[in-house]
Design a protein around this nucleic acid. Structure first.
Lengths: 351, 351
DNA sequence: GTGAAAGCGCTAACAG
DNA sequence: CTGTTAGCGCTTTCAC
């Protein structure tokens, strides 16, 4: 509220803080309603008016105020993407797929990163509850908003929510890969190489992905007629550091001839810790991961893993959310294919 | 617009879409202004009123509508963070530092990822121009908004902007590490190991970081009395793939005994490509990186690199932006220390 | 096809 | 310390 009170102090119109819809209307000699319509529903405006409005907008560089728009229309054209850990490189391609799809549709993306103090969760949920976003995409494999007793995200506002992994309350649309089958396939791959004692590195407790992958691991053992030994299960948390720590422990344990890590980051840290301690990979111990992150292929040895179509997951998830947002029907469940990528880190068991 | 038209069809008040400030006011028997003040400036409200408001808010689960708030107060309590590539793991710790600092101050973060179609840049700039964010943090080492002839981010709105690297127009506060000195130190490290022919892998053209690092490389060469040979400069773009590609080329080139890559991702891809082709690292060729990303320490061999205090960079940048936002003065330039981390990927030159 | 007018939910003057 | 009132900038009936 400095000098912006008097409309035109004599200079060019340029020093006015920021152009509003009224400025465009005045310049184009139409009402603000027509400007609004020219932007939202051009076909309901005469070509002449439309042209004048476009010219006026270009002339003064008008940009609609999103807060006003959101307040009035109760739509933000923003989507919330909730993920457990932004630092996990696994999500970056998914985010990319989501963002490009949303962008094309004129939607923006707000990232809700759960990594940090638990109070953050409430703030993220508030984004949806207060209409800052029109819908949400959940990439977190654990219950969201469980503090309030269930999926509160959306339940209050009716904002559509899509899960990009096995969803927890199974009543929201989900896009997923068959983690269980893929983990089973990897386990069978190891068994077929002659491994009988296969260690398993878990993800965080309570994680849905982890539950599926672990179940797949056990399926695979069963399919190969191998007994499950709880002593071979090492609790991890999907971080590189956990992998390094567990690798150090495994190096002292001559028993398992193969390790199946439920994600690549841990597998890479683990391989490194083994090699550092003189354990040869895959000579002494085979190591397998899950996800096929970029660093899996350049690890030494290159990591055998399960490739997930991450960008596609993101694109598909976003597309389904957009459908929901537009009131179109969406499949309750979409499954994308994975692929077993055999590289150098797995080999026949030593005899 | 379904059944929400008739106010109270008989059920509990619970099915009302979402509580507004008026609902709180009614329940607490105060005016909406008092509710607003109880939230914003509690000390200007009597303890009794404050308590009644708090109880009412808790009872109906009221959350202020941010769009209305933003529209009225012209403040969004949101900060824009612009970065060139969300997939680059280098940024994750910086983001973390930023986010935690902003969160404590009650600010939210919107990520503007430049990676993608160029139209995205305009949309990101619009966030600032339309008041969706109160300020911005620039992590991109290249000119932003140059299409409009200069830093338009902020110039229209007066929103404060802070650069987390050497800024392009040097008139905004910047937080940086001395890239040039660090690169020179690394180059000297290689020279001291006896390397005379040191290849250099660049970042994207026009990147400010890159300019500094490259200058540092040349400084280092000069300090070691080594001639600069343009033939040893390989244009990269900070991606793993570029590293792999350049590594493949280098494997055919027996000349350089050391490679200094201007970031870790490329160095890791490069090492891998060399090793795959039978070139020993560091036996035949030493490799050095820059950044000390998490994967540098677990690469095989572990990568010699320059550690940047990434989380601290983020925290400091956010803190300075918060100062600016609060009208407090801020230093034009803050410099954080780097550290040369010597690991296994560099060794004495073969003779 | 277009304009007038109401109001989204909130905060900030201004009185009292 | 509290209430009344106006209005942030836009979209959207409702008339014409």
């Amino acid at each position: 509220m400095d000098e912006s009170d008097h409309p035109a102090p004599g200079c060019d119109a340029k020093d006015r803080r920021v152009a509003r819809i009224g400025d465009v209307a005045r310049l184009a000699k139409v009402s603000t309603a027509t400007v609004s319509r020219a932007l939202a529903t051009p076909d309901r405006v005469s070509p002449e008016a439309r042209a004048r409005v476009a010219a006026a907008i270009a002339a003064i560089g008008y940009m609609p105020n999103p807060a006003a728009r959101t307040l009035r229309s109760q739509k933000s054209r923003m989507v919330l993407v909730v993920l457990p850990d932004l630092a996990n490189i696994f999500f970056s391609q998914i985010l990319r797929g989501i963002e490009e799809t949303l962008f094309e549709a004129g939607y923006g993306m707000i990232i809700g990163n759960l990594d940090g103090p638990p109070e953050k969760e409430a703030r993220i949920a508030a984004l949806a509850a207060t209409g800052q976003v029109d819908g949400a995409l959940l990439l977190n494999g654990h219950l969201f908003g469980q503090a309030r007793g269930g999926r509160n995200l959306g339940s209050r506002t009716g904002a559509p929510v899509v899960a990009l992994c096995e969803a927890i309350p199974a009543d929201i649309p989900q896009i997923e890969v068959d983690n269980r089958a893929a983990a089973a396939a990897m386990t069978r791959h190891l068994a077929e190489l002659g491994h009988r004692r296969i260690a398993y590195v878990t993800g965080p407790e309570g994680n849905v992905l982890e539950r599926e992958r672990f179940a797949g691991f056990r399926d695979g053992l069963a399919a190969a007629s191998l007994a499950f030994d709880p002593a071979l299960v090492h609790p991890g948390d999907y971080t590189l550091e956990a992998g390094t720590r567990i690798g150090a422990a495994l190096a002292r344990q001559p028993d398992p001839t193969a390790v199946f890590s439920s994600n690549d980051a841990m597998a890479i840290g683990l391989m490194r810790a083994l090699i550092e301690r003189g354990v040869r990979v895959p000579g002494d111990v085979s190591v397998a991961g899950f996800d096929d992150i970029e660093y899996a292929a350049v690890a030494e040895p290159a990591l055998t893993t399960i490739r997930q179509p991450r960008r596609d997951l993101g694109r598909t998830g976003a597309a389904i959310l957009l459908d929901l947002l537009a009131g179109r029907p969406a499949p309750a469940r979409t499954r994308l294919e994975t692929e077993l990528v055999v590289r150098a880190s797995t080999a026949a068991a030593r005899t």
